[in-house]
């Protein structure tokens, strides 16, 4: 009996340590980011850093303004949501309510596979197909907000589809049965009854999609053009916050390096807000 309780306590400790490791990681990342980034913001000047329109770190004197990159991230993400969310939600509806069983067995793994493709592969795909397509159809050089949005729209599909599908499946079957019993067609029952009932789950899917899109780096770098200037239209290039960090970290030193870490702080705050929004939506959705 005593041996039993010893074992119990031992395992409890193992679980506790596992939990602590992940919490510690988050805490250390916060500490590192803020300890390195906040002083840099102070040196550059808080407003010059957040609202400056010029980014030229190698000049003497240098300029570190990340407003172009913040807007870049927002525009590219907004574009990705516009493209990815409607496609994703409709796909989820199809998978959950329309798709015949044999087809589902092929489609579901295919959608899951989409999530497993490394982002560099997406990037090269975008560079050799989406960029030339945008160049041909709309002129310019192809590397643009539009190309990045299209690619990110594809990349957030698995996230949006997966969460939306489970949200739709979680709606009690009586709602659908009731709607059909009242004379609604299958489509009407799905779009007018099931989707509104799954609203909070779908919103959560959108928010997670935003998180994925705003944090994506490798693929965006290859198709967005990465010009560090204010966005000038969807057929022109743009640089995102993530791209700014990855592009220049390899060679940056001194204040330039700290400014990049401070860029990371801004990105971190963005993601934090998105996650808060996500948990708020999750809580709101619970009956």
């Amino acid at each position: 009996m005593r041996e039993r309780s010893l074992q119990e306590n031992l395992m409890k400790a193992v679980f506790l340590i596992s939990t602590l490791i992940s919490i510690l990681t988050v805490a250390l990342i916060c500490l590192f980011l803020f300890a390195n980034g906040i002083p840099a913001m102070g040196k550059i000047g808080f407003y010059q850093f957040l609202l400056g329109r010029e980014w030229s770190p190698s000049d003497l004197p240098p300029a570190f303004g990340i407003l172009p990159m913040m807007l870049g991230s927002l525009y590219v993400t907004a574009g990705a949501i516009l493209i990815g969310v409607p496609v994703g939600i409709l796909t989820a509806v199809f998978l959950a309510k329309v798709c015949p069983k044999p087809l589902y067995r092929v489609l579901k793994p295919a959608v899951d596979l989409l999530a497993g493709i490394p982002s560099v592969v997406y990037g090269f795909f975008g560079l050799v197909t989406i960029v030339p397509m945008v160049r041909m159809l709309f002129g310019g050089n192809g590397s643009s907000i539009l190309a990045a949005s299209l690619l990110l729209g594809l990349m957030i599909l698995p996230t949006v589809i997966g969460i939306t599908e489970s949200a739709i499946r979680a709606v009690p079957g009586e709602l659908y049965d009731g709607a059909v019993a009242l004379g609604a067609s299958h489509e009407r029952a799905v779009f007018r009854v099931l989707l509104p009932a799954a609203k909070s789950g779908i919103l959560a899917a959108v928010v997670l999609g935003i998180g994925r899109a705003i944090g994506e780096t490798m693929a965006v770098i290859m198709v967005a053009g990465n010009q560090a200037r204010m966005p000038e239209g969807i057929f022109k290039g743009v640089r995102t916050l993530t791209a700014n960090i990855v592009l220049e970290m390899g060679y940056a030193a001194e204040l330039h390096r700290e400014a990049l870490i401070a860029t990371g702080v801004v990105l971190f705050v963005f993601i934090l807000l998105i996650n808060l929004l996500f948990s708020a939506l999750r809580k709101g959705g619970r009956p």
Binding site: S56, D59, N141, N226, Q227, A228
Partner: peptide, 14 residues
């Protein structure tokens, strides 16, 4: 002082 005059329209790759 030094200023990098590379056009802001240039695509940037790393």
């Amino acid at each position: 002082s030094k200023k990098d005059m590379t056009t802001k329209e240039a695509l940037i790759v790393n």
